[in-house]
């Protein structure tokens, strides 16, 4: 019974026409919330949050680096689930969602690497080190680029979607490696300060950090909805000319 309800739910959400109707209503609100949270979060982190005792002012990079890192992993996990749905149930929206999420995820992963490097220079004394966390994160960025390259190199979209979904699911093996790398190996990168069991970050810094994490999430959602709408319009615009060709 539960299985049936789940299937019905996926089918309900996977209808492109219904998606276009719902996303048209939701997108302006999500975009507004994203902008508001981002402005408040970044201002809070940049100006009003306290200085760290050991990292001094460089700790302010945390408010742009940590959310980018967390969301680049989460976006890839989202893509892997969408790819699985695409391969198993062949839902029309799953491919669109995975492809559009990758375009945003690659920007988040790139942002994470560059801001991490900017944070590493004053705190570690180096811009880059081949440590487990940094290397596995770089691998994730390369996987994102490879995924997008695969989509753009294969002309047949059905074939491209199938191959990209397989690559995405295979690349998901990197996610637990990135997450646990700082614990499994003795790395330069510190282990996670944010856990479900609690946080080692002082509340005065934790609040703007959580605000930025939420803001990045809303930015992702707003951009994803807009990108998916654009991709559905593109498919609609190109469909007649392709069938004639």
């Amino acid at each position: 019974m539960k299985q049936k309800a789940k299937g019905a739910m996926i089918s309900y959400l996977a209808n492109p026409q219904r998606f276009m109707r719902i996303s048209e209503l939701v997108l302006p609100f999500v975009a507004m919330i994203a902008t508001l949270l981002l402005v408040i979060g970044l201002t809070w982190g940049f100006v009003f949050s306290p200085e760290d005792a050991t990292q001094h002012q460089s700790v302010r990079i945390m408010y742009v680096h940590v959310p980018a890192s967390m969301w680049s992993l989460s976006i890839y996990a989202f893509m892997a689930v969408a790819s699985l749905i695409s391969v198993v149930w062949r839902h029309a929206l799953a491919d669109v969602a995975a492809r559009c999420a990758a375009q945003i995820g690659v920007a988040y992963a790139g942002l994470c690497l560059v801001t991490g490097s900017l944070w590493g220079a004053p705190t570690w004394g180096t811009w880059w080190a081949w440590d487990a966390r940094l290397t596995s994160m770089l691998l994730l960025f390369i996987t994102y680029v490879g995924y997008l390259a695969l989509w753009s190199t294969i002309e047949d979209e059905v074939k491209a979607a199938r191959l990209a979904a397989i690559l995405c699911m295979a690349g998901a093996i990197n996610l637990p490696i990135i997450h646990f790398s700082a614990e499994w190996w003795n790395t330069l990168h510190q282990p996670s300060s944010l856990r479900l069991s609690g946080s080692t970050v002082h509340p005065a810094m934790l609040r703007p950090l959580l605000m930025c994490i939420t803001a990045y999430g809303f930015v992702f959602l707003a951009l994803l909805l807009a990108a998916m709408r654009a991709d559905i319009y593109r498919r609609r615009a190109l469909a007649p000319s392709r069938s004639r060709a």
């Binding site: 970044l42 940049f46 002012q57 302010r60 990079i61 742009v64 680096h65 560059v114 900017l118 944070w119």
Partner: peptide, 17 residues
């Protein structure tokens, strides 16, 4: 406000935006 860390912090925020 940022002192000698300005050259690291400001580019990170500018890049993000």
């Amino acid at each position: 406000l940022l002192g000698k860390y300005a050259i690291f912090v400001i580019p990170a925020y500018v890049l993000t935006i």
